[in-house]
Every structure is written in structure tokens, then in C-alpha cells.
């Protein structure tokens, strides 16, 4: 572990020069992505968190465009920013949680979480620095377009694709079943707000 840390520290001067040759759009996009994802985690208001997460998904879609994955960029916008986040926002508004209702955690908990996440970051980075660049650049034209992806999806991955349908069916049945109201629902907390949601 110490060896990994010292290896990380040794590449310190490299770390600064690493950013100099990067194209500006990539730098701006990465900065915005990290900033907005930090805001997702730290924001007190859950609605602000949802909006920041939508913005994060937009920037990740822009990364996909930079990476020549046009189909994934569009699907990411439609599925994540369009469907999943609207679902989150809808539940948030439905449960009326838009105000700050979260109790404050103790500082120790935050420190422990920061240490855990930071050591995760450190270990992955250090492990990558040990293994180094193992990926040969082999760009292929039009790999992210619908035609190329559809060919792969419906030939080699056709069985997982069909299983996806079963998964969706199960998820749909589960969500409907969970959301259905039972008749005499035992309420753990005696209702003082009146009304049953």
C-alpha cells in the first residue's frame, strides 16, 4: 500500500503536465461533469440534486459524442435524462420531499465515507499506474452508429437481448405489484398528518 502511494507521489510532476495537451472541450466537459456530480452528493435540497444529476447526464452524453458513440449519446439522453430522472423527480414531488428533511449525520460518518471513497480512488489510480497503458489505439469508423451496433446486438448478443425483455417484464410486474395499495395496511407510525398519503 505504501509502495502504491509513493508511486503515486512520484508521478506528481507528471500529473500537471498531463493536463496541458488536452483539448479544451474535453477539459471543460470533465470539469463540469465532476462539479455537477459533486453537487448531486452535497446538495441539501433533493430537487437540486436531481437537476444536477440531469446536467451530469447531459455532460456524459457530450463525452459520448466526443468518443464517437453517437447512438449511446442519444440513448443516454432519452433513457437517463428523459425517463429515469423524470421518474425520480416525479416520486420526489409525489412524496413532497422537496424540502430539507434529512437529519444531519455526524462528522465522523462523513470522514469515514470520505476516507473510503478516497482510498478507492487512490487504489484504482495507483493500480492503473502500475499496469500502465495496455490499450492499443485502433479506431474504427462508424462504430457508434445504429447500423454497426444493431448488427452486433442482433447477432452475437441476441440471447441477452431477449432476456432483457424478460427482465423488463419482471421489473414492470414488480413495480406495479409494489405500488398497488393494500386494503388494511398496517402503518408502523400512527398517522398524525391525517390522510393516507
Amino acid at each position: 500500500m505504501l509502495a502504491l502511494i509513493s508511486l503515486n507521489a512520484k508521478s506528481g510532476p507528471n500529473f500537471i503536465t498531463m493536463f496541458q495537451n488536452l483539448p479544451i472541450p474535453f477539459l471543460i466537459l470533465s470539469f463540469l461533469t465532476i462539479l455537477s456530480s459533486l453537487y448531486v452528493v452535497t446538495s441539501k435540497n433533493p430537487v437540486h440534486s436531481v437537476l444536477a444529476l440531469i446536467f451530469t447526464f447531459f455532460t456524459i452524453s457530450a463525452h459520448y459524442v466526443l468518443l464517437n458513440a453517437q447512438f449511446l449519446a442519444v440513448v443516454n439522453l432519452i433513457v437517463y435524462a428523459g425517463a429515469i430522472m423524470v421518474l425520480f423527480l416525479f416520486v420526489l414531488m409525489l412524496l413532497n420531499l422537496s424540502k430539507e428533511t434529512e437529519p444531519v449525520k455526524s462528522n465522523w460518518w462523513g470522514i469515514a465515507a470520505a476516507i473510503t471513497a478516497g482510498s478507492m480512488l487512490l487504489i484504482v489510480t495507483a493500480a492503473f499506474q502500475v499496469t500502465g497503458e495496455a490499450v492499443a489505439k485502433n479506431p474504427v469508423e462508424g462504430i457508434g452508429l445504429v447500423k454497426a451496433l444493431g448488427k452486433v446486438l442482433f447477432t452475437r448478443f441476441v440471447v441477452p437481448f431477449e432476456l432483457t425483455g424478460i427482465l423488463f417484464l419482471a421489473a414492470m410486474v414488480g413495480a406495479v405489484l409494489l405500488g398497488k395499495r393494500e386494503k388494511n395496511n398496517a402503518v408502523l407510525i400512527p398517522k398524525e398528518e391525517g390522510g393516507n398519503s
Binding site: 458513440a69 421518474l87 479506431p139 451496433l149 427482465l167 421489473a171 413495480a175
Partner: peptide, 25 residues
């Protein structure tokens, strides 16, 4: 994209599907 292999993007597609189901449930 860097390796010129479309399989990774298919995996992203499946991860999105699982994420949608997970969010719903």
C-alpha cells in the same frame, strides 16, 4: 471506441436497461 470493438457499447446498452429496471423497482 479506443479498441475499435462495438461490444463495449452493447454492454452499455444492457447496463442502461438494468438501470432503468432497477430505478423503477
Amino acid at each position: 471506441t479506443y479498441m475499435g470493438d462495438a461490444d463495449g457499447q452493447i454492454f452499455v446498452f444492457f447496463i442502461m436497461v438494468v438501470a432503468a429496471a432497477e430505478a423503477a423497482v
